[in-house]
Design a protein around this nucleic acid. Sequence first.
DNA 1: CAATACTTGACTAAAAAAGTCGGGTATTAC
DNA 2: GTAATACCCGACTTTTTTAGTCAAGTATTG
Lengths: 158, 158
Amino acid sequence: MRLTAKGRYAVTAMLDIAVHQEKGPISLADISERQGISLSYLEQLFSKLRRNELVSSVRGPGGGYKLSRDAGDIFVAQIVDSVDETVDATKCAGRANCQHGETCLTHELWADLSEQIHQFLSSIDLATIIANRTVREVADRQDAHQEENIERALAQEA
Amino acid sequence: MRLTAKGRYAVTAMLDIAVHQEKGPISLADISERQGISLSYLEQLFSKLRRNELVSSVRGPGGGYKLSRDAGDIFVAQIVDSVDETVDATKCAGRANCQHGETCLTHELWADLSEQIHQFLSSIDLATIIANRTVREVADRQDAHQEENIERALAQEA
DNA sequence: CAATACTTGACTAAAAAAGTCGGGTATTAC
DNA sequence: GTAATACCCGACTTTTTTAGTCAAGTATTG
């Protein structure tokens, strides 16, 4: 399990789609502009996300990407795994100095930990992230009236 | 929060010390041989671990490194943070296209998630990893309390 | 004093990340 | 049917990080 900027970009882009999905397919150009990620780089990432069946594409004008299934059925670990192409994990396989069991001990300890992290990320879905966020936003708006300005700005943009 | 081979090496080395700590200070040469990590590279990592007061050093013959405190008081997140020197996290700070609030939305969503991962790794200490060879119990406990953790994290943020 | 082992900083090769470029192909709207 | 949109794909470049090396120390023990 790796966790790097590449995975963050992918998760961010997926969240962007999840947030705007009621507008129909979302073009990479839109995501690029909103999230500040280069278009060509997004194409690379979405090529992998599509191959892993996390998104489906609609070509032609008005096209773009949409989530391949409900946001509640897409988990962070799946996104990260799709773009990061995790390898070996232990690299203990063909290791020369891994005979006397000593090495394998801590390698296995790490593998356990790695598995825990993976399980944790497998339990967080996009819908949960967005839902919690939305709830909080509503609460904030009720408290502070300044939020209305931001809402107007967002409405205009769409 | 980043999670890369560098952090894995550091955690592995710390686990190695924790496993052998009853033998007194552990030399980097021993760790290098057991874990297959180059001595000079370990020196770099332990320079940072020492500065972050996760280990203390004993010089001279028979010297080496030992844990600066009980294994139960050293958490995975501390080790990873020490060697990875996490930066910005959102990079949203001086971003040009981050004015109309839209960008900040998903950036914050990612920040929430990142914080959750960090909290998770902050809950795993070395003693626990070593005690439970197969650490399912902890994983299960985490699963049970996970929804609460998410709620707490979001509540705190506000 | 000599061997051990940590300490530090500068340097380098290799890999990965991030971004670019140039050509495609499918689809829609006019 | 043609032009515009937007996905699709592979090769390429740049930049950053990783991982490792080298060389010169300092402190401690036996």
